[in-house]
Design a binder for these strands. Structure first.
Lengths: 204, 204, 204, 204
DNA sequence: TATGAATGAGTTTTCATTCAT
DNA sequence: GATGAATGAAAACTCATTCAT
């Protein structure tokens, strides 16, 4: 997940992280093309050439962020195991993904921006690592269905639905909040709704 | 959905539509900031100044597209009626939204791009017209639940789920296709999955 | 003063004058470079191509206006005669020039703009026709001085002073009004002041 | 007259001054709208983006020049004092203003261009600082008249006359030279003329 | 490490002018 | 006469990136 950690001084590591954090904020808010290095440098409190001292180009920063975000999104999926209660595991996955949307909405938006625009930088990973992982977990879910431990569902679309429903609360947050108005906790409400939805869907 | 039809010559209407269609393609693929007027002009087969002869600025084109797309997205929601079978209507709404994702994915992506970036141009509409419409239909859905015609569900999050699940297939199409691989019809499969999901969720 | 009046229809003459009047207003307010043909067309209530139907180019309009304005400025100077009271004639000249600044400030500003920028279009006239005219009238004034009919003054700088003092009230009108504040009639006050000034200067 | 001298490197100060000097030359010769940043950059021997590195926009350069020029023009007026010979002070003021027209004609033309076009950027200063200063000095001049130290004159128009007569030699320099022809020193002659004019006007 | 200085290659827009009807 | 349509040439900025220190 981290870059090449060769002999980084403390200050170097700190600046790298400052830049990544600033860039995440800016990229997720305005997209790659809509963000200037100046904005990143300002947000990071560094000079523009100094930002480029740490990352060779604007693109390099972007790629570093995308890789980190992707790794983050894949982790919970990897944790789905054959052992344990089937429905509980899927519900827990949805819950964990929703928490991530709540706690890391910028990463979600960065990712969404990229996919929306055709995933020029992620395509190989999507068709490679991600696909393989989905295949693996889909086989597991199909098995659960076959064993009658959950209702029969198309496993890949089940996973898509979890992604769509949870990421929606991060990616479309403005819309969700605008529609709900004040006095709502979208993520808490979503958790209740999703629990209900998946319990009913998966009940054998 | 159409613009103001004031004394437009045939050629004018045609060029306007050429530009809007080209711009939709480019904006939805690369975002507002990532698209240049040159690209739009090329895609429309017009010169750059000629594009600006029809639309005062890049932004004007964008706004025209957003308004049309928004109107398109709102229409099916408006059609939900008190009369008729409750669950059927909601299932039909999901189905219609999914068809739109299939048939107008560019509009969906344009819209997603905008919301993702904080909806600078749509915020007032989201909190105004959209919110009011959602309130109205939510009341209807709540009533259906209260009458036992569908299971008790939080109506607004039910609507969010329909939006998220259907638009996902347009907005994240690259990912969906990459994960599924060749030989799949994502939208057809999604239809089956969503039917199942909402039937189970809404069964009283 | 008028262009070639060959077989102009009534409507043609009217449009020509509409354009010239609109252009005078715009050029005098924003300078040649700061004015667009669109602004002139709008002010004239005509379409842009129609403006260019009457005048081959923006420059052509400008030149027509300059020539008319110059002719207008020269006329009163021409009227200074050997006969009559010397001081009275010079006072009358100043008075007439001041009236022109009051009644035709746009022409004055158009002219000033041009001279300020090096008189690219007027240079030959300034060194030709104007110079000759000034020479002629200067000789007359010098003669008056020699005859003791007015005090001895350098005639050309006397003329410069009349130009400067009268045109100032048109060209620097904003400044004059800003300094005087409300409730003043700059031109009426100027008349009194200039009468006093020249009476004292010229008193033999 | 100088800008804010905050931590400017030598090269920065030098380039800033190069740009201002080049811009003064261009703006005074062709007006604001008639001047391009390219021309300024060329005249300064810098690249266009480098000019914009020092000044955020064409307008910023213009404003900086106007402020400096205005300050320069106001200074001599401020120096008129209650003490000393009344007529001498006014004559000295006219002389100083004439010297400035001779030595800084570009500043004069820049200023004239701006006023001519309605003083969009100076209006507040004209009605504020300038007006107050004129009020103050007018009171002084009125007092001198009342005390019989100079002839009774309308003080504000007296000041206008000094401005008009001296600035004319800078602003209308082309015309003055064209009319006088070769072999003349306009400013030297003007000095003699103005001395005579004001001595006669102000003689009690 | 860090940054002030500089710029080439765009990008959006403007505008005088032309063209076709 | 009149104008909708179109555009080449420029003009004001923008920005990722480089350079020198």
């Amino acid at each position: 997940m981290t870059e090449k950690p060769r002999r980084e001084s403390r200050i170097q590591r700190k600046n790298r992280e400052l830049i990544l954090s600033a860039a995440l904020q800016e990229f997720s808010a305005r997209g790659f093309a809509g963000t200037t290095i100046d904005q990143i440098a300002d947000a990071a409190g560094l000079s523009k050439p100094n930002v480029l001292y740490y990352f060779a180009s604007k693109d390099t920063i972007h790629v570093a962020l995308l890789q980190a975000a992707l790794e983050m999104w894949l982790a919970p999926l990897r944790e789905i195991q054959a052992e344990g209660d089937a429905a509980d595991q899927l519900l827990a996955y949805a819950r964990r993904k929703l928490e991530m949307s709540r706690d890391y909405p910028q990463e979600s938006r960065l990712f969404a921006n990229e996919i929306l625009q055709g995933a020029p930088r992620l395509a190989p990973i999507l068709g490679g690592e991600l696909r393989a992982l989905v295949e693996e977990k889909s086989a597991l879910i199909a098995q659960w269905s076959a064993q009658g431990r959950i209702a029969p569902v198309e496993p890949r679309h089940l996973l898509f639905s979890i992604w769509a429903l949870t990421q929606h609360y991060a990616d479309f947050e403005v819309q969700v909040r605008a529609v709900l108005g004040e006095g709502h906790d979208p993520f808490a409400e979503a958790q209740v709704f999703l629990d209900q939805l998946y319990r009913r869907l998966l009940a054998p």
